[in-house]
């Protein structure tokens, strides 16, 4: 078979098409972001954005929200996924379905539900204060990140013989909290970090929750800049993509650095 007719040729064509499809808009955006100064390439747009106190404030706010969301997600998902695998294996499809719901239900539906349920005239008026609204935001973000966090942790747990490890630890006198903290958590750390980086990437650019709950997050700031400026939004987009790629790179790095991921229980 000639090279032109071979599968390898079409594989290269598909790859080239994919690279162009994903890379061209980014290259275009990046190139545009460098043209703020007339007649020359510069990082002026980046300097303006990074020096804007609103960027720093909203970015730090979103970072804080992301970290809190990760903590809440881990506290919610790890014990749940562990318990479902250990004691309720028949309920796994149901729990998986529930964790997938945020992909089906739009964020705007969830946030309107929150506003109706937790408004100032409700039993729990969380939207009545900034702190209460922040709590709502973290809860909402946890729900948004649930499909990714649950899947990552569940995949991590699948590589372990949860039942036998739990029984071995119990026979050595350990209780459930010790087992979770000392055995399960360290062994799914890579999976948790994968889920955490995905959560971070989702929360850092999230718009709907922050805008409708009127909180000073990075998403609405990006929208504000995008509506009023020319070159800065392009620089912001590149920054946002860089953060996402950094998260993906870190995921790969921790997976490689984890010493005991090469577990072979049976030889």
């Amino acid at each position: 078979m000639s090279f032109w007719r071979s599968n390898r040729f079409w594989a290269w064509v598909a790859l080239a098409f994919g690279v162009l499809y994903f890379a061209l808009p980014l290259i275009g955006t990046f190139e545009f972001s460098l043209r703020m100064k007339r007649g020359e390439y510069s990082f002026e747009a980046y300097r303006v954005i990074l020096g804007d106190p609103r960027f720093q404030a909203t970015f730090m706010y979103s970072v804080m929200m992301a970290l809190l969301t990760i903590v809440m997600g881990v506290l919610l998902v790890v014990p749940t996924a562990y318990w479902v695998r250990l004691k309720l294996p028949r309920w796994r499809p149901v729990v998986e379905f529930i964790t997938l719901l945020p992909l089906i239900i739009p964020a705007i539906v969830i946030v309107f539900g929150y506003i109706r349920m937790y408004n100032t005239s409700s039993v729990l008026p969380l939207t009545g204060s900034a702190f209460g609204t922040d709590i709502l935001m973290v809860c909402g973000y946890t729900v948004l990140a649930l499909p990714y966090m649950y899947r990552a942790v569940d995949t991590g747990l699948r590589t372990l013989d949860i039942t036998t490890l739990t029984e071995a630890a119990e026979s050595l006198g350990a209780g459930k909290v010790t087992i979770l903290a000392k055995i399960i958590l360290p062994n799914v750390l890579v999976a948790i970090l994968s889920g955490a980086f995905l959560t971070f990437a989702i929360v850092i650019g999230e718009f709907v929750f922050a805008a409708l709950l009127n909180r000073p997050a990075f998403g609405p700031f990006m929208q504000l800049i995008g509506a009023n400026r020319a070159y800065e939004p392009a620089a912001l987009a590149v920054i946002a993509f860089s953060i996402t790629w950094l998260c993906m790179g870190l995921m790969q790095l921790v997976t490689r650095l984890q010493k005991h991921t090469q577990v072979k229980q049976f030889r």
Binding site: L160, D161, T164, L165, E167, A168, A169, K182, I183, P186, N187, H260, V263, Q265, F266
Partner: peptide
């Protein structure tokens, strides 16, 4: 049977 050593 499966040893059940803690991998971490």
């Amino acid at each position: 049977q499966a040893y059940a050593l803690f991998p971490n």
